[in-house]
Design a protein around this nucleic acid. Structure first.
Lengths: 151, 151
DNA sequence: TTGCTACTTAGAACCATTCCAATTGCTTCA
DNA sequence: TGAAGCAATTGGAATGGTTCTAAGTAGCAA
């Protein structure tokens, strides 16, 4: 086989190595699947998609790999109420909009200063490591289209 | 001057009646328990506390009543990652701070304009019914710990 | 009363997730 | 080359919060 492509440095392999972990076919395919269709799939949905490449992968492995990707800061786990955890490879600061009708989740990019403003409401003595902002409501169809179809 | 509506004894009965529902001992005691110790208890914790008054109440009833209170807008259900749902009788607009060390949850009151500012980041086509803001980190403050979870 | 409906209840079912114990597969290093 | 050692994967069982179901109870209305 040919060498691995030098055109795109493998962020995944690097991050894994940095944590003393190996790059495996399962981890690679799962990460690819998340990058390819950024519609916040559940572990089950990831499992289904990954199976076209790795038909014998187990759901337990999907959970393990997703957890690994989250630990390496390559993927964010997103929870909405008590629904199944969804996974999101968008690493920029962003909020989530949950469309109650379609059940879909959309990324909302946040301007640089907003998280500061929000964190400023914390009284002294509260040291926040992270902030999460979630909207719930209705999204018009064209925006849904945008979120589902492109990156 | 009347008392704050949150502590008025029959706010519950009124709200229930408004939705065509009955005031029952179970619903009253559960609501009292939530008002009395505002430490965001889980359904299980509510069950335990309510049992001192109603020793034979079932966990299913606790779930049912909590759901009813949420429907009547007397109580907010609060979720943090995949942990059990917690219940909060604070009806003012507020965010939640989760202390990772103690596992306790604190209300953070929000200035009136903040939610507007946050909602302003939504692109056109997104119609948000609610916004949720959650902080995670370390709380150094001592004064509130007593009420929340001293052992 | 009779009937109607809301409410409560115990236990079963549900379902996302984690755990477990058994392989399988790299990677050294002798 | 090959044995050791550890990382990773796997199927299935277990877990835990929550919801469902079907039966029983209680309050209101005619």
């Amino acid at each position: 086989m040919s060498q691995s492509p030098q055109t795109a440095p493998d962020a995944l392999a690097q991050r894994l190595a940095h944590s003393g972990l190996r790059s495996t076919p399962q981890r690679e395919v799962i990460y690819d699947v998340l990058l390819k269709k950024r519609d916040h799939p559940t572990a089950d949905e990831v499992h289904a998609r990954v199976r076209t490449d790795l038909p014998s992968i187990s759901l337990a492995t999907v959970y393990n790999c997703l957890e690994t990707l989250v630990q390496c800061d390559l993927v964010r786990a997103v929870n909405f109420e008590r629904g199944p955890t969804r996974y999101c490879p968008n690493l920029r600061p962003h909020a989530h909009f949950h469309d109650e009708q379609s059940g879909s989740t959309h990324d909302i990019d946040l301007p640089a200063d907003l998280l500061e403003k929000v964190s400023a409401v914390l009284p002294p003595g509260y040291d926040a490591k992270s902030v999460e902002i979630t909207f719930r409501g209705k999204a018009l169809k064209n925006s849904e289209h945008r979120a589902a179809g492109s990156k």
